[in-house]
Amino acid sequence: MILNIKNLTKIYDTGTKALTDVSFDVTEGEFLVIIGLSGSGKSTLLRCINRLIDPTSGEIWFNGKDIAKAKGRQLRETRRQIGMVFQQFNLVKRSSVLTNVISGRLGYMNPMWSLTNYTPRSIRQDAMRALEKVGIPDKAYNRADELSGGQQQRVGIARALMQNPRIILADEPVASLDPVLAHSILGYLEKLNKEQGVTIICSLHYLDLVQRYATRVIGLRDGKIVYEGDNTSIRKMTDTQFKEVYGEEAQRMGSGLLGESA
């Protein structure tokens, strides 16, 4: 077991209860998909795991340590083992693709180097290899905002790869992309998952993608876990179960796509 979430609760300063008493385990090598409506707490949950958001209470056991209250060096060392991929890619648009990829290694580098813009040769080579893995080594010296959405997300994955992560958190990684690109991006994540054993925790919107890639599924609604199922059970998911996750208004799309609640 690589990750063990116990009674995680997050209440924002505004009083919004984003997560209520969420508990689940993640086994190493899983492709865990989190489903739920916008605002159901998926993003909050993912950001609590790498502590971009501080949980209000609860425990996050990663690698045998509770990191829910980790600070400073311990937090850095935890974060660098957890890669993250974002819906809006979150690249530094004006920096080169290579620089964006290199920034994935920052958790391992001496902070003082950042002042001089110095990057050891070996790290640059690693960055090129990461770009090769996602198939865009020729774009290394382009500005990040010159790339298409799909290419940008591949840079985002390459950046996460630079961390040599044990887990990759992917927050709706394909929500801004068209279906063909979505399969391509999730294909890279699946490859990492299968070939290198990287654990993936990914939030998704489209049911057919969930059914295609997930080895396990957790459904969130109003900050609570309302559904848990494995790969086989999600294929048999009934409309009733579906409505439990997505609310009464939710409908199954003909192609198996699930739209945002109407």
């Binding site: 957890i82 890669g83 979150n90 648009k93 920052l106 902070p111 630079m162």
Partner: peptide, 24 residues
């Protein structure tokens, strides 16, 4: 967004400023 992404890599405050804030 980029600040969040750089923080998530385990970068410290200085690195975050140099890599995510300064270029912007």
């Amino acid at each position: 967004g980029p600040i969040e992404a750089i923080q998530a890599t385990g970068a410290d405050r200085l690195q975050t400023i140099m890599y995510a804030v300064v270029p912007q």
